[in-house]
């Protein structure tokens, strides 16, 4: 498993850069991860990220767009604005979770 250095920390990631160890993530790291993909985190972003973290902890599966929209109470349109172009992947990346596997 590759190891990369973000914010002076060694982080385990997969071939595409998604974190592979849930516990290596913290909010400070999220800020750095977001910067890497050009996202400035606002409270609204954090609502989504927090939901992803909690949902993954409960189900051991990264939620897809629809589940985040329903669970975090953020309309799909807004998710596309907050995390442009590839919201499901970008959210998972910033939240330090594996790439979502579901189709929807």
């Amino acid at each position: 498993m590759p190891v990369t250095t973000i914010a002076s920390r060694d982080i385990h990631v997969d071939g595409e850069g998604f974190l592979t160890n849930y516990d290596e993530w913290d909010p400070e790291l999220a800020e750095q991860l977001a910067k890497q993909i050009g996202v400035d985190l606002t409270d609204r972003h954090w609502t989504a990220i927090t939901f992803l973290r909690e949902d993954y902890a409960a189900r051991a599966e990264t939620p897809g767009l629809r589940r985040v929209s329903h669970g975090a109470g953020i309309p799909t349109k807004e998710l596309f604005t907050l995390f442009p172009k590839k919201p499901a992947k970008k959210m998972a990346y910033i939240a330090g979770l594996p790439k979502p596997q579901g189709c929807v």
Binding site: G64, L65, R66, T76, K77, F80, G102, V104
Partner: peptide, 16 residues
């Protein structure tokens, strides 16, 4: 598998 019925799915596609 967490997939909506057709009308809701169409809405999600439009919203996306």
């Amino acid at each position: 598998v967490g997939v909506p019925e057709v009308p809701e799915f169409l809405k999600q596609i439009v919203d996306s």
